[in-house]
Amino acid sequence: KRPVSAMFIFSEEKRRQLQEERPELSESELTRLLARMWNDLSEKKKAKYKAREAALKAQSER
């Protein structure tokens, strides 16, 4: 099983909040919005998710 990506971790963290704030969005619209949010995120903020990705990857390799 492959470890999850930093973007996937970000998306899972933000998805529920966005669904509550924007219930009119379809699943595909929500996914596009999350992708745009990820792309607009600064490298400094992405680092938090990339660190979690690395930790999960290291854990799965044990």
Rank of each mutant, 00 (worst) to 15 (best):
Lys1Val: 07
Lys1Met: 14
Arg2Asp: 08
Arg2Met: 07
Pro3Ser: 14
Pro3Arg: 09
Pro3Trp: 03
Pro3Tyr: 10
Val4Phe: 06
Val4Ala: 11
Val4Ile: 14
Ser5Lys: 12
Ser5Arg: 06
Ser5Tyr: 06
Ala6Arg: 02
Ala6His: 01
Ala6Met: 02
Ala6Asp: 05
Met7Arg: 12
Met7His: 13
Met7Gln: 15
Met7Ala: 12
Met7Thr: 04
Met7Pro: 11
Met7Gly: 07
Phe8Ser: 12
Phe8Val: 13
Ile9Thr: 04
Ile9His: 01
Phe10Asn: 01
Phe10His: 03
Phe10Arg: 00
Ser11Leu: 12
Ser11Arg: 07
Ser11Ile: 14
Ser11His: 06
Ser11Lys: 13
Lys14Ala: 11
Arg15Trp: 03
Arg15Gln: 03
Arg15Ile: 04
Arg16Gln: 12
Arg16Leu: 11
Arg16Gly: 12
Arg16Ala: 13
Arg16Glu: 08
Gln17Asn: 10
Gln17Asp: 08
Gln17Lys: 09
Leu18Glu: 01
Leu18Pro: 00
Leu18Cys: 07
Leu18Met: 08
Gln19Gly: 10
Gln19Arg: 14
Gln19Glu: 10
Glu20Ala: 09
Glu20Ser: 14
Glu20Gln: 14
Glu20Thr: 10
Glu20Asn: 06
Glu21Arg: 09
Glu21Met: 10
Glu21Pro: 00
Glu21Ser: 13
Arg22Glu: 05
Arg22Phe: 11
Arg22Asn: 14
Arg22His: 15
Arg22Cys: 10
Pro23Arg: 03
Pro23Ser: 04
Glu24Pro: 02
Glu24Gly: 10
Glu24His: 10
Glu24Phe: 06
Leu25Cys: 07
Leu25Pro: 00
Ser26Cys: 03
Ser26Gly: 08
Ser26Leu: 04
Ser26His: 05
Ser26Thr: 06
Ser28Tyr: 09
Ser28Pro: 12
Ser28Ile: 12
Ser28Met: 07
Ser28Val: 09
Glu29Asp: 13
Glu29His: 04
Leu30Phe: 02
Thr31Cys: 07
Thr31Asp: 14
Thr31Ser: 13
Arg32Lys: 15
Arg32Ile: 14
Arg32Gly: 09
Arg32His: 15
Arg32Trp: 07
Leu33Ile: 15
Leu33Ser: 05
Leu33Asn: 08
Leu34Tyr: 00
Leu34Glu: 03
Leu34Phe: 03
Leu34Ala: 05
Leu34Thr: 09
Leu34Lys: 00
Leu34Ile: 10
Leu34Ser: 03
Ala35Cys: 05
Ala35Val: 11
Ala35Ile: 14
Arg36Gln: 09
Arg36Thr: 12
Arg36Ser: 14
Arg36Gly: 08
Met37Thr: 04
Met37Ser: 04
Met37Tyr: 07
Met37Ala: 09
Met37Trp: 03
Trp38Thr: 00
Trp38Ala: 00
Trp38Val: 00
Trp38Ser: 01
Asn39Val: 06
Asp40Arg: 04
Asp40Gln: 12
Leu41His: 00
Leu41Arg: 01
Leu41Pro: 00
Ser42Glu: 07
Ser42Met: 01
Ser42Asp: 14
Glu43Trp: 03
Glu43Ala: 14
Glu43Pro: 01
Glu43Ser: 04
Glu43Arg: 02
Lys44Ser: 14
Lys44Gln: 11
Lys44Tyr: 03
Lys44Asn: 01
Lys44Phe: 06
Lys44Leu: 08
Lys45Ala: 12
Lys45His: 08
Lys45Gln: 15
Lys46Pro: 00
Lys46Glu: 01
Lys46Ser: 01
Lys46His: 01
Ala47Gln: 14
Lys48Ser: 12
Lys48Gln: 09
Lys48Thr: 14
Lys48Gly: 10
Tyr49Gly: 00
Tyr49Cys: 01
Tyr49Gln: 00
Tyr49Thr: 00
Lys50Gln: 14
Lys50Gly: 03
Lys50Leu: 13
Ala51Thr: 12
Ala51Lys: 11
Arg52Phe: 04
Glu53Cys: 09
Glu53Ser: 07
Glu53His: 06
Glu53Trp: 07
Glu53Phe: 05
Glu53Val: 10
Ala54Ser: 10
Ala54Thr: 12
Ala54Val: 14
Ala55Leu: 09
Ala55Trp: 07
Leu56Pro: 06
Leu56Glu: 12
Leu56Gln: 09
Lys57Arg: 10
Lys57Gly: 10
Lys57Ile: 12
Ala58His: 15
Ser60Val: 12
Ser60Gln: 12
Glu61Ser: 12
Glu61Arg: 04
Arg62Lys: 15
Arg62Ile: 11
Arg62Cys: 05
Arg62Tyr: 15
Arg62His: 11
